[in-house]
Write a protein that binds this DNA or RNA. Structure first.
Length: 759
DNA sequence: CTAGGGTTAG
């Protein structure tokens, strides 16, 4: 003990206890508190509730909750004041569970709480989202009459808003004798946060009638609420309205409205707000900087975005995260990765958002292996992933059919209780479907307690991509019966399922119900499904006619669906029209040339096959190793199609034999053996064409043949439909396979992948 | 004892 402390203690000796307490009640120094404690013990006041309560408050002031707690325990007869300070302080320090423990101990000690303690307990319920406990406290307040206090009423409104029980909050608010500004603000912004635009506006516009004058916080709460819920235009309108009634926006208003401006991609307004920020000298506010970067990123102004970032002196993680997200949003994944690596090297402590946005950026841009690698690094860096991280990582596993990693990620989310999240659930369904495990996808789907549109769509499209049309339709119908309205994506999946199953009438009914029943205007991908639906059934003319009635110009997917159907039905005239258009739209896609040459070959028109080959060379596809193999591919196609009944089969076979000879002479192997031999050549691109089911069988053979080291194929391109692909992937039972073919997944996502489509 | 408002990842 220092000399000074001894002197202080001596000084205390000369004072009576009362004067000590009045002298240092406001003390926050722990040493002084301990000295007083020593003095109380010495002077024999330790059993005196009055003195101990005051001492307890001193410990609370010093944030020494454990010391205060042991004092509380030592008291033989605690009273309301013994609890008061601890309850208030613990609630203020967000130690909500402790607050509720203290509150229940108070009740068990038969001490009646007062109107000051109740709000703290209610605040704790709000903080814990413990609405059931909150209701009990409310009930207690009603029976004791304490709930009539305006502070208590206001805190109840707040609690119900925080617990998302807006109906209770509204009832409580309407019952208040003197509705106050704070409760009113909380209620209105609560509605906004929930996306209930109607009620938010209703309550907000009640202000005048209630004699409430909105202040800056009220306006900001509304803007932030609408922004959080994605009601971008409402947020911007609030911001404009606020300015028009003479409120000048502060940093909070700006950082809340900027993401909405970005969401609306309203660059003009974004720039205006940026100017205002500079004028008001707010450009040093880190939240505003992050929001500005985010806004410019969403408005596709990557240059301006980087300039705002570079102008910043102190490196802020939020700004860095916004920059990475902005770069990746604009397709500049490599740039994003560079920035990410630079900051990692610098030793910047990256948080979950940084890691997650980098993982998401990779998995969305075909860098799936990198996404998995970054996830591994993230764990090494001991940053705890959350449900968003998992929902970004799962598509990476699905994209490359990395079932082992997908399962590991699933286990990870089970261990960490992320699997209840709807986004994680949907991503799991998608991943299992992409890995050929549709039954597992269904189990995940069935186990979900809450389902949103994304889950239903994932399950429907999963079944559709597996060719399980009846199941896809069943899910689609179940979704509507459960009260979930379908959107564009739901229809794409169900139409694609109908097309695969040849359910023409049902598909047409769904198609027309889109606008008639659901008020959805059919998009180009829906037309592609319809063309495929009709075309597959041999109604090529009808399909072609439908294309001419489309409100939008048919794109490559629609023409591709027609060309595939033409190949299926060996229709040269329409096939030529479709191919001609496709050569214009995507001259570098070898699949279109292959399909057309298949049509010619199946009609025994070999001169035209040669012409297509020349054309391929002309557009620069001759370097494509697949190009010189076109005859073989045709041959494989014919063999697999098993088209023995083809009227010109003998001639075709003759021609094929000749091709085979040529191939042999030029050193290229032929027949079924070619498939097995060629895969042993490293780095070869292997292209397989064929009718889906037959192709799937071949791929199965190929894959299970012990002498076939499939791992040596660096580029495998399959011209088949989704059945074959799925079959291919699922035949790798227990083995890991990585498939990189962004094109295929693009088509999958669009949902127009149909029989014979090329990807 | 004095409540209500901010950025970035799906």
């Amino acid at each position: 003990m220092s000399v000074r402390q001894v002197q202080t203690l001596r000084a205390f000796d000369n004072l009576n206890s009362n004067s000590i307490l009045t002298l240092i009640t406001k003390s926050t120094s722990i040493s002084q508190t301990q000295q007083v404690h020593a003095h109380i013990l010495k002077t024999g006041h330790s059993n005196d509730t009055y003195f101990t309560n005051n001492l307890l408050s001193l410990y609370v002031n010093c944030q020494r909750f454990t010391d205060a707690e042991s004092l509380l325990h030592s008291l033989p007869n605690p009273n309301i004041f013994s609890f008061k300070a601890l309850i208030h302080a613990s609630s203020k320090s967000n130690l909500f569970s402790y607050t509720l423990v203290l509150f229940s101990r108070l009740i068990s000690a038969c001490i009646l709480p007062d109107v000051h303690i109740l709000p703290s307990a209610i605040k704790a319920c709000a903080g814990l989202s413990a609405v059931e406990v909150g209701k009990q406290v409310h009930g207690f307040g009603l029976t004791t009459g304490l709930a009539l206090d305006s502070f208590v009423e206001a805190s109840l409104v707040h609690m119900y808003v925080k617990c998302n029980q807006l109906k209770c909050a509204r009832k409580m608010f309407d019952k208040m004798l003197e509705p106050d500004l704070v409760s009113w603000s909380a209620l209105a912004s609560g509605y906004a946060k929930r996306g209930d635009v109607v009620n938010a506006k209703l309550v907000f516009d009640q202000a005048g009638k209630l004699g409430i004058e909105p202040n800056l916080v009220s306006w900001n709460g509304m803007i932030a609420g609408f922004n959080q819920r994605g009601c971008y235009s409402e947020a911007v309108l609030m911001f404009l309205r606020m300015n028009s009634v003479g409120f000048s926006s502060d940093g909070t208003s700006i950082s809340s409205v900027l993401p909405s401006i970005g969401g609306l991609e309203d660059l003009k307004m974004g720039v205006q707000v940026h100017c205002y920020v500079i004028k008001m000298g707010l450009e040093c506010d880190i939240c505003i900087i992050s929001a500005l970067i985010d806004m410019y990123g969403k408005c596709r102004c990557t240059l301006e975005m980087s300039r705002v970032f570079e102008g910043e002196e102190e490196m802020d993680l939020g700004a860095f995260n916004a920059l990475v997200a902005g770069l990746s949003r604009n397709g500049l994944v490599d740039e994003a990765f560079k920035v990410f690596k630079k900051f990692k090297r610098k030793g910047t402590e990256l948080n979950v958002v940084s890691w997650t946005s980098m993982i998401g950026s990779c998995s969305q841009h075909g860098k799936d292996l990198e996404a998995l690698e970054i996830f591994r690094e993230m764990q090494l860096a001991r940053v705890m992933p959350n449900s968003v991280t998992i929902s970004c990582l799962l598509p990476a596993c699905g994209n490359i059919a990395a079932l082992v990693h997908g399962k590991a990620t699933h286990c990870f989310s089970l261990r960490n209780c992320f699997s209840d999240d709807v986004y994680v659930g949907s991503a799991l369904i998608d991943m299992y479907a992409n890995c050929g495990r549709i039954q597992v996808a269904r189990v995940v789907f069935d186990r979900m307690s809450i389902r949103n549109l994304v889950c239903w769509n994932a399950m429907t499209s999963g079944y559709a991509m597996h060719g399980k049309a009846m199941e896809a339709i069943e899910i689609f119908e179940l979704m509507q019966r459960s009260g979930q309205k379908p959107d564009f994506i739901s229809f794409t999946s169900v139409l694609s399922a109908c097309s695969q199953a040849g359910l023409i009438e049902q598909g047409q009914d769904y198609f027309y119900s889109m606008s008639r029943v659901h008020g959805l205007e059919a998009r180009v991908e829906h037309y592609a499904c319809m063309v495929s639906l009709l075309g597959r059934a041999g109604k090529l003319k009808e399909a072609y006619n439908m294309m001419s009635t489309m409100p939008v110009e048919p794109d490559a997917c629609v023409w591709g669906a027609l060309l595939s159907s033409c190949r299926l039905h060996r229709n040269t005239s329409l096939g030529e029209i479709a191919a001609c258009k496709l050569f214009e739209l995507e001259p570098k896609n070898p699949g279109n040339y292959i399909l057309l040459s298949n049509i010619y070959a199946s009609n025994n028109r070999w001169k035209e096959v040669d012409r297509v080959r020349d054309r391929m060379k002309y557009v620069g596809l001759s370097k494509n190793p697949g190009c010189s193999w076109i005859e073989i591919k045709n041959k494989v196609h014919m063999l697999l199609a098993g088209d023995d009944l083809h009227p010109q089969m003998p001639q075709i076979m003759e021609k094929l034999r000749k091709f085979s000879m040529d191939m042999k002479n030029s050193g290229v192997s032929h027949d079924m053996d070619f498939v097995l031999q060629d895969v042993e050549e490293q780095d070869k691109e292997l292209i397989l064409c064929g009718h889906s089911e037959k192709l799937a069988v071949v791929l199965g053979i190929l894959n299970t043949n012990p002498g076939t080291p499939l791992s040596v194929i660096k580029n495998l391109r399959i011209c088949g439909d989704c059945h074959s692909f799925i079959k291919f992937i699922s035949s790798f039972e227990g083995r890991e396979i990585y498939v990189r073919d962004a094109n295929r997944f693009h088509h999958f996502k669009e949902g127009v992948c149909s029989c014979g489509d090329y990807w």
